[in-house]
Design a protein around this nucleic acid. Sequence first.
DNA 1: TCTGGCACTCGGTCGCACAGAGTGCTAAAC
DNA 2: GTTTAGCACTCTGTGCGACCGAGTGCCAGA
Lengths: 343, 343
Amino acid sequence: MQLQPREVGVLTTLIEDYIQTAVPVGSRTIAKKSNLNLSPASIRNIMADLTEKGYLEQPHTSAGRIPSALGFRFYVDSILQYHPLSSEKRNLMTEHIGDAKLDVPDLLRNASRLLSAFTRQVGMVLAPKASDIGFKHIDFVLLKPCLVMTILVVEGGIVQNKIISADPALNSDDLVKFSNFLNHLFQGRTLAQVRARVVQEMEAAKKQYQTMSGQALALVQQAFATDREREVFVEGTVNFFGHPEFSNPAKLRELLALLEERTRLLELLDQVCKPEGISIFFGREVEQDGFQEYTLISSPYQGQDSPLGVVGVIGPIRMDYAKVVPLVEFTAQVISQLLRNRF
Amino acid sequence: MQLQPREVGVLTTLIEDYIQTAVPVGSRTIAKKSNLNLSPASIRNIMADLTEKGYLEQPHTSAGRIPSALGFRFYVDSILQYHPLSSEKRNLMTEHIGDAKLDVPDLLRNASRLLSAFTRQVGMVLAPKASDIGFKHIDFVLLKPCLVMTILVVEGGIVQNKIISADPALNSDDLVKFSNFLNHLFQGRTLAQVRARVVQEMEAAKKQYQTMSGQALALVQQAFATDREREVFVEGTVNFFGHPEFSNPAKLRELLALLEERTRLLELLDQVCKPEGISIFFGREVEQDGFQEYTLISSPYQGQDSPLGVVGVIGPIRMDYAKVVPLVEFTAQVISQLLRNRF
DNA sequence: TCTGGCACTCGGTCGCACAGAGTGCTAAAC
DNA sequence: GTTTAGCACTCTGTGCGACCGAGTGCCAGA
């Protein structure tokens, strides 16, 4: 079902007006704002056609039209022209995200904050999935007798800590030996491979609990016993208050609840995140309660080569895509850049 | 200005009713709910006295009364009887906060979440101030040539990471030597002392950049170059939506903005946190914009002996103090308990 | 094919009246 | 002297009707 050029013109004008005003748009407004040189009456005919085809909706008989999800989809896929980012803005962002001295979580949180500040929407960054990343270093620190802290560093300088209990006979020197042994053993593998290797070695070393390697493996197995939930940094939820679509507190509440509940949020991101390039998802297109009316714009970032995580922006369907999309894209680039130096 | 027993009775009934309903309370209601056996007319006289003395306020002529800040202050200081926590609840909380395997941030975040879930208010936990804690261990990992990750472990198993740049000539073996040297040097000091010591040693070693100790100090100095902001875990902001006092979105927005802006929040906590015992602060009693209408209930937690941080709950002045206060107190106890095992 | 005109629809707002909750005061009862 | 019943008064919230304005759909004519 192709749209005629005039229909596209009306749809574009309508959507862009609606993005600015959040109010149903009438034929008169479009007649004035578009450069089609048609009278309101003609516009009305075109609008009726667009409504029939599903691109527009009418809240009630005597209101103007608002774009439907289909309308927005058509707009972002076929019409939208992105504004390129000004170089001042690029500099400003690069500067603020990345003091390269930051550790990865701080860096990602910064990115999320900046994104939220610049777009006036809610910023979101999904942290790398640890198990896909290369092992770098493991270390044990004896906090007290029987209480050992394991510190696991993966490539890029991402650190995970865990506290485990240990044989009372172990002392600091033992721990140093263990870490030397394990660092050597795990060199150059991903965490997932390390995990597998641990299981395998444990099998082999089953009978030799007394040996150094047996003890070391028992210790490291504890460190790997449970998986950490993948982190998500969500910043700027206050921005929701700026938008008229959130004047209904119940809706706002539902969305905030979704964002606070990390497991549901991760589920949502899983559904939505394509491995490459910018993507724009409307809530109606995903199966997640309470997200029906919102949009997620996201772009993956990567280290040396493989994708690590995702940055994005969450807001109402009515969003200034032309401005927000390039910002999200650029943020992903900056993060990729910063991380690449570390991998 | 002492209150007579009857006045106290009326005030108590009124506040407790108001805590439940959030609606101005009239004389008839009090006459029925209190056990003073007085008619509404008599209650009205007493209420007029209480209003004159500043314990009650009247939103408008024909409304009932609501407690003033002074009224609440009197209530929490002189009247309030805490409900002891049921042992099931104690068990439930202990169990959920503390899998002792968690690292400190996760543990504190958990505590904050639980507190928020049980009180239906917003939970808050202020993390320990690193500089007061004892040094435990420092470690360097070579991520790439010129790029070193420093891992600093302090007592209790709190970890701080930082990425710093290094002399290209350094290799992993050098880093091991450095950390051995420094771990020995800093043994048994607090971070603040370590900082001071680094400065002092740098002075002494000024001329000997070539020596191992000179290089090690140069490296560690970078690691200590900037201070980290003290962390605060705020959880359950969605709970604000449950309370009628937040039906005004502008107020809600202001409070959320305050909670998102960590520096302002830290300022507030600084004003409010007494070093010992539970404390209840009304917004009107502190100088922090946007906090006028809320209450912060807080209690410090400690490791082996000295106070480390604070746990608390933020909500409207109208709060079920009898229930919330013991919960906050108990959470602080559980955290103290868990941390004590590690210090 | 486009446009001017016209009747119609529907939501938002304004004004008004009214009910309900609560007060303060007075006078009578205990 | 204290307590209480009664009463007039005040103020808010709500429901209702009228009205205004924005916008539509359709028809007839350019």
